[in-house]
Design a protein around this nucleic acid. Sequence first.
DNA 1: CTAACTTTTCTTACATGTATAAAAACTCTC
DNA 2: GAGAGTTTTTATACATGTAAGAAAAGTTAG
Lengths: 188, 188
Amino acid sequence: MDRLTMRRLATEVGSTPMALYHHVRDKEELLVLLLDDYAARTLRRPELPAHPRERIIVAATAIHEALAACPWIVEVLTADDLLSTSALWFVEQIVDGLVECGLSLDRAVHGYRAIWYYTAGEIVVRTTAARRRADDDRATYREHVFADLDPSELPRLAQAADRWAPLTAEDTYRDGLRALVDGLLVSR
Amino acid sequence: MDRLTMRRLATEVGSTPMALYHHVRDKEELLVLLLDDYAARTLRRPELPAHPRERIIVAATAIHEALAACPWIVEVLTADDLLSTSALWFVEQIVDGLVECGLSLDRAVHGYRAIWYYTAGEIVVRTTAARRRADDDRATYREHVFADLDPSELPRLAQAADRWAPLTAEDTYRDGLRALVDGLLVSR
DNA sequence: CTAACTTTTCTTACATGTATAAAAACTCTC
DNA sequence: GAGAGTTTTTATACATGTAAGAAAAGTTAG
């Protein structure tokens, strides 16, 4: 986000900063367009399994992988649910998979939203955590927190204290996604 | 985030901008501290139900409500998993609930992370969507997308097109949370 | 009380996003 | 092809976060 400046872009394109603003409302819109372009060029449709539940997993994972590979995405990612027209096909697969598993269309849309919340949240949280770690002053904050834990008040956290860092370093997106999808498909 | 400027804060406190930087690494850290203070003052511990599964729901919902009531939170929310020491009690409740439901401690921590991803994602996505709607130029983008949908290629989305806006306006945090927790508790 | 040292504050400076309004380039009709 | 109208670009300006280093205030040892 910060690496790209309107001034630098303008001079590299042989123009002036304010000229860019005729084509783009603000810097964020430019980045959304970049993300859109990125998605259009890199999102390849995977082969989908026959079972609808697995189809949901594969489609969501594909989106997640594409986004996670792109660290500048976070600031843009706070966009809405439909990141770009190129991603619509994946959304379709997810909604359709949910419907095929027996959900009503309305519930399927809600289900897709939940999956999107989870996916976007995972990337945002994980990416910013990684950035903080690079700073490494702030990384020690967590150690502080866990060191001063009162085991009588917060026994589970105290118990997990030394394992917290490695545990949260693990990539558990798929597991959480599976759990969420399973839960969504349990008829309630 | 933008409403608070270091310069204005400094003059209101009767100081200079750079003096603030001795106490705070940067603006973001100041906001994290503000969030921390906000959490400490407003997060009241609710009465917890006996059943561990419901306890998870109640604790997560409490965090979610406190955060969702605080719109400037989004930029800060991309913090790590432990928002503040005042929230630790809630984290404890969630992890403990998961353990009581039969998960190992490791899986419980992962489960908490999944819940946090979902919660943070929900707030970030929903809040930014609301901000965009205020702009309302960008709100029409979605209508465009749905208007030009090819029903033969994306049948479900075409089918849901006119209901998409109201559907995504509904607050389904609780439903998604329940689904996620259910899924996490299904022994795999 | 003084002198060294540490913590805190101030001054100045720069790069950034972008508002505003004028200028230039382009397009299209007659 | 001339002139009106539209689109695109430029010049200028301002508020912002914050780096760098000087200055001041506070603290402590002798």
